[in-house]
Computed example of a mutant assay.
Amino acid sequence: MPSADTSSCAGKLCPCGSGQHYSACCGRYHGGVPALTPEALMRSRYSAFALDLHDYLLATWHASTRPTALELDESTRWVRLEVLDQRQDGDKGRVHFRATFQEGRRWAVLEENSRFVQEAGRWFYVDGKPVIERIKPGRNDACPCGSGRKFKSCCGLG
């Protein structure tokens, strides 16, 4: 599996929201260690979106549903991941999650119930039906990034 330069992440908290340092969390998967569970793979894929790791996203996408190319919007900033539910039954798994992102000044939440399959000791993302809901946080609302601070004094600056 190709590895990307993630040296700027060393010592930082993982984008997946686990509370662990990147190197002890998704960084090891991005470096080639197979994810042990569907949830671990889903978290590492979220982090790969946040870090623009295109090769990792394609390599962890099941061959039966993998696109030939991946066009990501560079203006998208992924800010929060919430795992709502996860299930594993043998070599199949599901992860229901909600991911909050920002595109320019617009905010949205992507919710998906993703399917995963394990082959030859590796988990792969198969598919999911994303539902995107635009949100408009008010200045005094809780920030959508999950910091617990008011929007105006967190991500709403500027």
Rank of each mutant, 00 (worst) to 15 (best):
S3P: 12
S3D: 11
A4N: 12
D5R: 09
G11E: 08
Q20R: 14
Q20A: 14
S23W: 00
S23A: 15
S23N: 11
C26G: 05
R28V: 08
P34T: 10
P34H: 04
P38T: 11
A40R: 01
L41H: 01
R43N: 03
S44G: 04
R45A: 02
Y46K: 03
S47L: 04
S47P: 03
A48Y: 00
F49Q: 00
D52Y: 12
L53K: 04
H54F: 08
H54R: 14
A59K: 04
A59V: 07
H62D: 09
A63N: 11
A63T: 14
S64E: 12
T68N: 11
L72K: 10
L72H: 06
W78E: 01
V79H: 01
R80Q: 07
E82F: 09
V83N: 07
L84S: 07
L84A: 09
L84R: 11
R87Y: 07
G90H: 06
D91M: 14
K92M: 15
R94W: 13
H96E: 14
H96F: 12
A99F: 02
A99S: 11
T100M: 06
T100D: 04
T100S: 12
F101M: 10
A108G: 11
V109R: 10
S114C: 09
R115L: 14
Q118G: 04
E119C: 13
E119W: 05
E119T: 15
E119L: 14
A120T: 11
G121Y: 02
R122G: 08
Y125P: 00
P130Q: 09
V131N: 12
K136E: 10
G138E: 10
N140K: 10
P144Q: 05
P144W: 00
S147T: 05
G148N: 07
